[in-house]
Each structure stands twice: as structure tokens, then as C-alpha cells.
Design a protein around this nucleic acid. Structure first.
Length: 166
DNA sequence: GCCAACGTTGGC
DNA sequence: GCCAACGTTGGC
């Protein structure tokens, strides 16, 4: 079993949305490296941190799991979908892929990016590297558990996120 | 709102 | 195949 971090902008799709939907396809990945992670390495049962990017205090909001392995991202051949349509992808020869994820847990205390930066045990995480923009990154089991441990403690940042992160 | 870092595009 | 120009991401 592997561990991952999935980025999403809460304005577009948040962990709360996944909590409501229970299961959703992770569509719209249009980066080859992230696609390859999904298509080649993500397996049913893998565990993912759900990260909220591009908000006041970026943070890990909770956990979801992979419940269906990679299959073609059909939003790529929906011409009505301005953001996701890509004429290079067809049902016969799909270019982009997605997996299905299921809601698992919403953290009691959200784990804020600035708090993650201060944690030496997380210093190798790709998400913390300057300029890293990959929306899907592998993480280690230790990093996963460290972030879960952090979610059990309230911080100034986690309290702020609970009150006004959107 | 700014801008650094990165990925992609396309001319040559 | 190189690389400049451009667009996007996403933290700050």
C-alpha cells in the first residue's frame, strides 16, 4: 500500500464536497507526471492526504482512499467542458486518466502548511519544496503518520483555518 | 496582487 | 533538438 498527497483548490472541490459525495472521480489532471503516478502507481486501497491549495492558509484537510484504479478521464473529450477538454484525447486513445477516491476522514485540526514547514520530520516532502507544482505526489508512510499526529493537536493556524480559511 | 518556478509550445 | 516566449500554479 502506498501513500499520496492530492492537491485541490477548495473553491473547485474540497474535502467537504467529497464528504458529501462519499466517492468521486479525481478528474482534470493535465500534467504528465501526475498522470503517470495515477495511471501506473496508484492502487486500490492506497491512502491519500487531501490538501487544500490556493487558499488563505494552505493545509491538509483530511484523508481519502483510492477505491478505483486508473481509467480514462472522460471530461477530456467533453467539448462543453472548457477547462478539461483536450482534443488529443479520444475514447479510442485516451491521453488523460483518473482514479476514484472515497472520503475517509476529516481532520479534527487541519494541518497548516506553515506548521508543516516547521516540522523537521517533514522536510523532505515534495510539497514543501520551493516551486513544486505537482498536484499528485507520493509521500512516505512516516510522513503520512506524522501529519496524522499533527492533526490531533490544535495550533494557532489550525484554529484560524477552522474559522476563515475560505 | 505579485512573482518565482515550472511545464508547454513552436519557430528555427 | 534547442531554447525563448508564454501560460499556469500556488505560496506569500
Amino acid at each position: 500500500m502506498k501513500y499520496w498527497l492530492l492537491k485541490s483548490e477548495p473553491n473547485a472541490y474540497s474535502l467537504e464536497d467529497l464528504k458529501r459525495d462519499k466517492v468521486e472521480h479525481w478528474d482534470g489532471v493535465r500534467n504528465y507526471q501526475a498522470r503517470n503516478f495515477m495511471r501506473d502507481d496508484m492502487k486500490k486501497g492506497d491512502v491519500c492526504l487531501f490538501y487544500h491549495s490556493n487558499c488563505k492558509i494552505p493545509h491538509v484537510a483530511g484523508v481519502c482512499t483510492v477505491v478505483k484504479e486508473a481509467y480514462p478521464d472522460f471530461t477530456a473529450w467533453d467539448i462543453e467542458n472548457e477547462c478539461h477538454f483536450d482534443s488529443r484525447s479520444t475514447p479510442e486513445n485516451p491521453l488523460w486518466f483518473m482514479v476514484d477516491v472515497a472520503f475517509k476522514e476529516e481532520f479534527k485540526h487541519k494541518v497548516a502548511l506553515p506548521d508543516m514547514r516547521k516540522n523537521k520530520k517533514l522536510q523532505d516532502m515534495l510539497i514543501l519544496r520551493k516551486g513544486n507544482r505537482l498536484s499528485i505526489t507520493p509521500i512516505s508512510v512516516d510522513e503520512f503518520h506524522e501529519i496524522c499526529a499533527m492533526s490531533r493537536k490544535e495550533t494557532i493556524n489550525s484554529r484560524k483555518i477552522d474559522t476563515f480559511y475560505i
